[in-house]
Design a protein around this nucleic acid. Sequence first.
RNA 1: GGCCCCGUAGUUCAAUGGAUAGAACGAAAGUUUCCUAAACUUUAAAUCCAGGUUCGAUUCCUGGCGGGGCUACCA
Length: 590
Amino acid sequence: MLLTNRLKLAVANVLKNNYQFEINPDEILISDTKPEFEGDYTLVTFPFSKPLSKKPDDLGQEIGALLTEQNSWITSFNVIKGFLNLVIAEETFVHFLASSSAREIAQMEGRTEKIMIEYSSPNTNKPLHFGHLRNIFLGAAVSNLYKKCGFDVIKANLINDRGIHICKSMIAWMKFGNGATPQSTGVKGDHLVGDYYVLYNDTFKKEVEAMVTQGIEKEVAEKTAPILLEAQQLLRKWEAQDEETIKLWKQMNDWVYAGFDVSYQRLGVSFDKYYYESNTYLLGKSIIEQGLLSGVLFKKEDGSVWVDLTADGLDEKLLLRGDGTSVYITQDIGTADLKYQDFQMNQSVYVIGDEQNYHMQVLKLIMQKLHHPGADGIHHLSYGMVELPSGKMKSREGTVVDADDMMDEMKQMAQKNTEELGKIEGFTEDELQELYQTLGMGALKFYLLRVDPKKKMIFNPKESIDFHGFTGPFVQYTHARICSILRKAGAIPEAPTTYVHMTKAEKKLLQLTEQYEQVLWQASLEFNPANLCNYLFNIAQHYNSFLPNHPILKAEDEAIRNFRLHLSRLVKHILADGLLALGIKAPQRM
RNA sequence: GGCCCCGUAGUUCAAUGGAUAGAACGAAAGUUUCCUAAACUUUAAAUCCAGGUUCGAUUCCUGGCGGGGCUACCA
């Protein structure tokens, strides 16, 4: 059992047996003792002061005495201003180290729940950009984390392959493309289609300007520009299943998918199930019919169908148009139902930007009102937008940072850094290329994952992404250093069972390693990989600062050497394992 | 207008209501005959404002100020 949980239990026992005070152990606050004080873990006694009618300081003294008396693994204590600092026996940590070495790390207790995580979910009219990367890395990391915690995870991707946006790319290609293909131009498919989307917008803008100079009002021009009308006409033809239109649509989407596949592979992410809006956009109507019958929904005079969410503090929301056609939310209701039919998962997570908070709230509410079995499991993993110092990225204005370009740039930066440091000896050219990729992606992923998903983040392309400090490469570097030491150490004897003179740094490192499993759970349940990033950086930092004054291979004696080797190996395992959960590889050498 | 989110060192981020608010980058100074200096050590530097709840508030509540999002018979 985890040490903090054991402590909570021990405290709960003392309170119950010696003070007749019953409390749920989970409600007891145990935190790491601050470095400036003596001790490993700290109990805050204030909350018990009132119910037990005792001064926090006295309470600390009493509980401290009882705890050390009743638990051999708690050796001593001190009380400062109501904070009870507890010293944990070194043997406890030594035993933990030995057991960790034996069973490898983090074999988690299995959970049987099934969880679907939908992420990426791109439009097919343009390539992936920096904002998508945050979505993709989050989705992939959360999927990994839940898998580690034993859940049955389904990674889903809902592709937005239909609608006016793809028609815009199509019309531009028809007018200006001259039959260009990825093969004929050598341009990656998603980029090629994206280029025509940009071309559409340029043309549109010019047409509007021309109309305005002719004296037409801007708002009118923006609704009647010829190329827009053509795109809308194309959408109608698509909906009417016009053969030529469908053929071109399929063709251009296939180009995009081929391009996405290349990017996904390079990003190191994959999906178990793809959904396509062209297949799902008509779903949902029958569910809405049922809702009408059961009286959850209502129909207005013009035949449109609505749900009244005013009691939940929201508005009335349209679900079906007067002519019986679907709107966006109709489709999402249908897709949610389809997903549930396919997998009957306990939780259905949507990794979607916070601009859709309202939409997702509405979706869940409607599903709940309809008593859909999957309704309560719907969870919106909402994340903040990635912004540039100049503001939001806008694909129409060409201010987006392209995902493929970003990956190239990161790899080049890794190469530049490595070469400048002269660390290329002993690698083949292939190994170097792989290393640059590993380091570049490590920096990129860590950079995007280290911030709380809820918060919007600002990315400054000029300052770009660092390889020093709180970064992926820092953690990777620490891992590589340990690997190097272990290589030189050769075969390692059995883990020690006793160790007398543990330094403060050694004990702290062990304490951190013991908390790893807890961090994984917390990061999963909170859908927050940033927790893991912080933890990994913290433990790497502690290791790096431990290293200069704790010789390992040249330790004073065999026992110390062996202990430090095992400690190092455990840290190495955690770094590699944790990075992997973030989707980051840990190189043996760098 | 209505609803929601966010304001922490110069900058980018931490801090389940708990001790003297932590890091990183940047700035200043130092460490390499020693297991990878992509590292380590030291210094300076912050909770938007005003109230309230509490033994204790960056955190919770109210009101300002500042920034963002949503609010379509668009997707």
